[in-house]
């Protein structure tokens, strides 16, 4: 979220709306633009938490103007942004009586399963509510990415069955998926003790916590500037 606003031609709409939000964070007039922007995020598979929070904020100020259909899209997009806590951030701004509606209750349950890493239950529940989540393209894939994120925090080597359950892919499709990951993301395959397949996930500081670097002791330059007058 840097402040580098390279003055390009405002060709894409995203640029314009982001800028609108930056300049008018508290202006009710941009509400329709923000609603359109949610729809655009859905169709173009992009995401802007800041713009969506800004819209929820305007809804919070003027509940009469709230569109529950837009709110649902924002929440699904926020689920897709996991592991970031965006879903909670959005819920904090949505009145309780709105959260009582069925579609939102379902989304809250889905979020609960993802937060507690119960992927089996998640996929079952999602399958029962296709009409809600399939509105947003890329939903499945985004959740699979989150599942893989949690798996690679947790596992060095993961049994194939566990992976299959977490990302809800089986059989040949899973073979293809793994093949792709081997080619692009540094996955390896191993045979387990009982001939079952083991997937070796790339090493990171989270699944090898002992590797964690002590970056905490680095000092930002601006802190050092405090002693410049002394050094000179």
């Amino acid at each position: 979220m840097g402040g580098e606003m390279t003055p390009k031609t405002p060709s894409s709409m995203s640029y314009t709306v982001e800028q609108l939000v930056a300049v008018n964070p508290y202006n009710p007039d941009i509400l329709p633009d923000l609603e359109n922007y949610v729809n655009e995020q859905v169709s173009s598979q992009t995401y802007s938490l800041d713009a969506n929070l800004c819209l929820l904020r305007l809804y919070q100020f003027e509940p009469d103007r709230m569109s529950t259909q837009i709110v649902a899209c924002i929440l699904i997009k926020a689920l897709m942004a996991m592991p970031a806590p965006d879903f909670s951030l959005c819920l904090f701004l949505i009145p309780e009586r709105v959260q009582m509606e069925d579609q939102f209750k379902t989304l809250i349950v889905l979020s609960h399963y993802l937060e507690t890493a119960r992927f089996r239950q998640f996929w079952d529940e999602a399958a029962k509510n296709r009409q809600i989540v399939e509105v947003v393209p890329g939903f499945e894939q985004a959740i699979q990415e989150y599942a893989i994120h949690v798996l690679s925090l947790t596992y060095q080597k993961i049994p194939r069955t566990i992976l299959a359950e977490a990302i809800n892919i089986e059989g040949l499709a899973l073979d293809k998926f793994i093949e792709h990951q081997v080619a692009t993301s540094g996955w390896h395959l191993e045979k387990g003790l009982d001939k079952s397949q083991l997937i070796v996930l790339p090493c990171n500081e989270f699944n090898h916590p002992e590797l964690k670097k002590n970056t905490a002791d680095s000092i930002p330059l601006e802190h050092i500037t405090r002693i410049f007058p002394i050094l000179s």
Partner: peptide, 19 residues
């Protein structure tokens, strides 16, 4: 699932989006 949840909940995303 509890172990994965432990990992998820103890690994926050900071203001720059870093875990």
């Amino acid at each position: 699932t509890i172990l994965m949840s432990y990992k998820h909940k103890t690994h926050a995303v900071d203001s720059e989006g870093k875990v």
